[in-house]
């Protein structure tokens, strides 16, 4: 019924905000939430693309993306627990003993 450009812009904007969050927030959990935000942008993009062609493949791709998001969320939280047990902090900067 309408053009998909606004959806692509919305997706790009969500993705950009996610990128910014990933780069600038120092809390591990917020960093990971930012990647979820980026996935959200991709979901919007995919659904719009599917609309463009008039079939549900894009929606299914987006559903599969939810699976990846869930997979990564599960792992991320497991990892955060491990890291928190070691250092007692969620600061990403505290994990920088290797460099150069």
């Amino acid at each position: 019924m309408n053009d998909i450009a606004p959806y692509i812009f919305l997706g790009a904007l969500l993705f950009a905000i996610g990128l910014v969050g990933f780069l600038s927030r120092r809390n591990l959990i917020v960093i990971f939430l930012s990647t979820e935000l980026m996935f959200q942008g991709v979901v919007v993009n995919l659904v719009a693309m599917g609309r463009l062609h008039g079939h549900v493949d894009g929606q299914i791709f987006a559903l599969f993306l939810l699976v990846i998001a869930a997979v990564e969320a599960g792992l991320a939280l497991g990892l955060v627990v491990l890291l928190y047990r070691r250092k007692g902090t969620l600061d990403a900067e505290s994990w920088s003993s290797m460099w150069g």
């Binding site: 990128l19 990933f22 900067e93 920088s96 290797m98 460099w99 150069g100």
Partner: peptide
């Protein structure tokens, strides 16, 4: 170039982005 490998997660992410 070593300055690009400062060890912080987000530094690496920044260099990627």
């Amino acid at each position: 170039l070593r300055g690009l490998q400062q060890g912080a997660l987000q530094g690496y992410a920044a260099s990627m982005v």
